[in-house]
């Protein structure tokens, strides 16, 4: 069984946002497991999770995607 949203909100405000060519935004508190299996708790209202794999601050985005060639952007 799945929960259904029984009303349409007036404004878009999703919990997870995929930014084109950039990170994944997470709203709220979460524990994110990185590629090495380490767990990281979010500390801010919205967190940006790296999708390009090149951030030196894994699992969080550090803006590195902006200096990658287009074919390497997520």
């Amino acid at each position: 069984m799945t929960d259904q949203i029984d009303h349409v909100p007036d404004f878009d405000h999703p919990d997870v946002v995929l930014c084109p060519g950039g990170p994944l935004l997470l709203r709220g508190e979460h524990v994110v497991q990185d590629a090495e299996g380490r767990q990281h708790r979010t500390t801010r209202p919205v967190s940006a999770v790296c999708r390009c794999g090149k951030s030196t601050d894994q699992p969080w985005c550090d803006g590195t995607h902006k200096v990658l060639p287009d074919k390497l952007k997520p």
Partner: peptide
């Protein structure tokens, strides 16, 4: 600011 502003730039622009 490395981490915070990687979030904030997406919020500010989008």
């Amino acid at each position: 600011h490395i981490e915070a502003d990687a979030v904030h730039e997406q919020l500010a622009v989008r």
